[in-house]
């Protein structure tokens, strides 16, 4: 904790692990850190695979460092549902900044926990915040619910699309497009880039959202760096606005507290029932069809009335 505040990389890295692993005492550490946080703005970068998000993050980070920011990057990749392991390869595209002073990059696996990604990423971002990183970029692959969750932790979200992904925009409409504060059309030198931008424009027009006062779509080329500068401006500008949007701030705080309560209850339920013979007999009842899952759940829920499971006493 103290090391983190003193901006020691190793101490920060270990704190992040502790938070990520929910190592006993992590909550105390977060409580102690909280007063030292609140200075960092959090930028979310998401979109379908193959969009060049990591290269774009690399470029954005380099530009932000040039402006004098200390930048933390959280690069999130999915865990394997089979082994629970993960292949985290995002930082390989972040070489320009991987040894730059004032940059801390951390790869994170989704670990498939229930709504946990958002909280985990938020906690890690907070640790970076406390260690003096005033901007935190969270990069995720936008394919599943976990990634959509990220919006809850970020002050501003950029959705990255590329031309040539077939029905990409179509697919985006269904999910992550709704969470975007800005849209990035990366690899804008490729054929079809204008079409993607036009599709997004049409979609925005249909949504009825009033975007007349601000630019929403940014063409970039993360290889040459073209277009990254205006995008950086826009992201910083939108992130700064959040401070002046008290409803969004309190909505997020409410969501976070509720989520922590939910998760803790869920954890206690599982821990409490794990060894309880009543769970076993309920399961057996369902399996042998003497009972049904609904009645079994109802019966177990009865235990919570007395709070014996929830409190674990």
């Amino acid at each position: 904790m103290r090391g983190t505040l003193a901006r020691e990389p190793r101490a920060l890295a270990r704190l992040v692990s502790g938070v990520e692993n929910r190592t006993p005492g992590w909550e105390d550490a977060m409580k102690a850190l909280y007063p030292h946080t609140g200075k960092a703005r959090i930028l979310g970068i998401t979109g379908p695979p193959g969009g060049g998000k990591s290269s774009l993050t690399n470029r954005l980070t380099a530009g932000l460092v040039d402006r004098g920011h200390r930048v933390g990057v959280i690069a999130i990749d999915p865990s394997s549902p089979f082994s629970g392991g993960a292949l985290l390869g995002d930082r390989l595209r972040m070489r320009d900044v991987s040894t730059a002073p004032g940059v801390f990059i951390r790869s994170m696996a989704t670990r498939g926990s229930l709504g946990g990604l958002c909280q985990g990423a938020r906690d890690v971002a907070r640790a970076l915040d406390a260690a003096g990183y005033d901007l935190v970029l969270i990069e995720t692959v936008g394919v599943g619910q976990d990634e959509v969750e990220i919006v809850k932790a970020a002050d501003v979200v950029a959705v990255v699309c590329v031309p040539g992904q077939g029905d990409g925009v179509q697919a985006l409409k269904a999910g992550i497009m709704e969470i975007a504060d800005v849209y990035v059309v990366n690899k804008a030198d490729r054929d079809g880039a204008d079409q993607v931008a036009a599709d997004i424009g049409a979609m925005l027009a249909l949504s009825g959202e009033d975007t007349t006062d601000r630019e929403m779509v940014f063409p970039t080329n993360s290889l040459s760096g073209e277009g990254v500068e205006p995008l950086t401006e826009a992201l910083l500008d939108r992130a700064a606005r959040v401070e002046h949007a008290p409803e969004r701030v309190s909505e997020r705080a409410r969501e976070e507290v509720l989520l922590l309560v939910e998760r803790e209850i869920a954890r206690r339920v599982r821990a409490g029932l794990a060894e309880d013979p009543r769970l076993e007999s309920a399961v057996e009842g369902v399996v042998t069809r003497r009972s049904d899952p609904y009645s079994a759940a109802e019966a177990l829920l009865g235990l919570f009335g007395r709070m014996e499971v929830v409190t674990g006493e």
């Binding site: 290269s55 292949l87 390869g89 995002d90 390989l92 595209r93 070489r95 290889l223």
Partner: peptide, 9 residues
Amino acid sequence: FGEAEPIKL
């Protein structure tokens, strides 16, 4: 020309 990007697994 720029440099080749590393290839992700």
